[in-house]
Design a protein around this nucleic acid. Structure first.
Lengths: 133, 133
DNA sequence: GATCTGTTATAGTACTTCTATATCAGATAG
DNA sequence: CTATCTGATATAGAAGTACTATAACAGATC
């Protein structure tokens, strides 16, 4: 199974799908240019309606993460992080980072600990990025 | 104005209030033990219904960020980050950090850049934390 | 032609968000 | 004591979101 979702989560299903796909790309589990399952296929695998998958894919497309063609279906963009992907992405992203880190700070996570967590996560991406040996 | 919200945002108002309060605490703008405006007062300031503020405060209380008494109203907890605040907070938080950092990675932000952003945000907290001179 | 794909339309249920009132109780200031 | 502030709670409605259920169409593939 490429993807796992939690039906009991507060996070909407289509958002979970988006998050898992983005993480899979960062991890290197989904290589650039590779195809995602068809909306109906993934919906069947997850036992959900295909419109929900459609919404997730449409979100990924609007965010510049994937391309969707009638021919090849949904494929991971090869140039997802090139050019000006989305105006104001960096600012909006840092605002969310700020909120997330503030939350940790308030819960007693000190600066060093927080940095460690960030390094930990980021290095888990880098490890797999150079996949071919 | 202690707090600014964006009525055009996709983020629910009560969530925005929660986020701004958490950030204000991390920044040191809201010291531990200090009081938040009353729900009716803040609602009037923001020109929204007091139930929406109530929901935000209730969320902050359930997350262990503030205490609410009938006497003193809502005050920032002095021991917000001590003991076991919420079971599984760290795990859930790191999962969200992972999603956020993956998003940056997919948009072409490399590891060094991402770390720099994290440092930047975290140091902006630390600067104000030792407020009294 | 049958079957896969994405695309689009319609529509209903359930839930969330926000607003609007109203009421009650405790604390406080005049 | 009365007026007014506070939080707490109940109810209800409007608008939007999330998800599901069908259905139909067009292009690609076998």
């Amino acid at each position: 199974m490429l993807l796992t979702i939690d039906l009991d989560s507060e996070v909407p299903i289509y958002q979970q799908i988006r998050d898992r796909v983005v993480e899979a790309i960062a991890d290197g589990d989904l290589a650039e240019g590779s195809a995602l399952p068809s909306t109906r296929q993934l919906a069947a695998d997850l036992s959900i309606n295909f419109h929900t998958v459609n919404k997730a894919y449409d979100l990924l497309r609007r965010q510049g993460v994937i391309r969707i063609n009638r021919k090849s279906g949904a494929v991971v963009r090869r140039d997802a992080g090139s050019g000006p992907p989305e105006a104001g992405f960096a600012d909006e992203w840092q605002a969310r980072l700020r909120t997330l880190l503030a939350e940790a700070a308030v819960h007693g996570v000190n600066t060093d600990e927080a940095m460690l967590r960030c390094e930990e996560v980021l290095s888990s991406f880098a490890v797999k990025k150079g996949t071919p040996a």
